[in-house]
Design a protein around this nucleic acid. Structure first.
Lengths: 196, 196
DNA sequence: CGTCGTGGTCGACGATCTTGGGCACGGGCC
DNA sequence: GGCCCGTGCCCAAGATCGTCGACCACGACG
């Protein structure tokens, strides 16, 4: 049998090349050609590992989502306190330049999901992670198990809305303001759960 | 001097043609060529009224935003009650097929704003309208003048987050659920403002 | 009635993603 | 050790997109 390469490793390598391009030049530069050049291959080589550009974007997005999940499960291990919950959710928000760039890719995929059916279904997994984080936060802050479904959905929407505003108006929505608004919402959740 | 046409009228006509295409075939079909064909002109003719595609999108988006504003200032004229505020904000949410399509264009512009500087600044006006609506709602529900700034920003983020989720998971976020979640948030605002 | 600027079309350019055909390399088998 | 054939990879072309430049036509003004 012929030459054998580790497909999973190659896919991870290509995703890493894409993130290098995105971090350095922005999401606008994330073209198939530039990513291939960054990785040192021809554009056609990408097709052996990602049939379409959307697949590459989704794969790369899932990768950073998994990293974020790792960050906040590490946080959660220290115990489900109020501060831990806040830091956990902050891991999902674009509070530094790198995560702003990641959020740009997320937004690009959201827009593409309106057109590309493949992006639509695979995006679902991505923000299921955010939903679960919101669920955990609500459950911890209100002390109710299972977490209130409506409160979870509202927190989830708030997180994505804050992300969107951070991208659209970075001047009006600097990191500390995002943190404050999130804290205000979490405060209300705590009050609602423990009215005493 | 040569032939004279009403530029503003022509621009409105082109925007109307674009919305016909979007309503019928989705935002993915909103290409320069298809819009020109819908309007009955050559693609180059658009350039006399919109230098770039982004300009057309922004203009068309501003048009429907103005319509929405008209709808809810009509509502507001009946008096700033709790029900009026809810209906006013519901005008801004994708609760029917037509406004889902409008929200798709909004999302497309948001993604494009990450790349196209022209889209970025002009998008600002668009969601300033949403921000003002949120401000009015907060002021009415809490009975505090001027409206609490943080509460306004949170409501604004919630509105955009709900819109996003309605687009990404229409099955998990049907219209009545959007309404319920909004109502829950408005209830909390009322309680916070009038604790007695 | 002539002029010239505006309105409009055609064609082309550059960039994009995607696809098909072909070359090379190298591991398995005799 | 030498031959196969399948995998990996590239080149070039196709399709579609937004944008631009050159050109034609019409019509209002002088």
């Amino acid at each position: 049998m012929p030459k054998i390469v580790d497909h999973d490793a190659r896919r991870a390598e290509l995703a890493a090349a894409m993130w290098r391009v995105v971090y350095r030049d922005g999401v606008g530069a994330a073209t198939v050609r530039s990513i291939a050049a960054e990785a040192g291959w021809s554009p056609s080589a990408l097709r052996h590992y990602f049939a379409t550009q959307t697949e590459l974007l989704v794969f790369a997005m899932e990768h950073v989502m998994a990293e974020a999940a790792g960050r906040f499960t590490a946080e959660a291990r220290t115990g489900p306190s109020r501060e831990v919950v806040q830091r956990m959710l902050e891991e999902l928000l674009p509070l530094d330049r790198q995560r702003v760039r990641e959020a740009e890719v997320w937004l690009l995929l959201a827009a593409r999901a309106q057109v590309d059916p493949a992006a639509r279904e695979r995006m679902t997994e991505a923000d299921e992670g955010v939903r679960r984080a919101a669920e955990l936060a609500v459950s911890v802050l209100t002390g109710v198990q299972p977490a209130d479904e409506a409160a979870t959905a509202r927190l989830h929407a708030l997180l994505d809305g804050l992300t969107l505003h951070a991208l659209l108006h970075p001047d009006r929505m600097p990191p500390h303001r995002i943190r404050d608004l999130l804290a205000a919402h979490l405060d209300e959740l705590s009050r609602a759960g423990a009215p005493s």
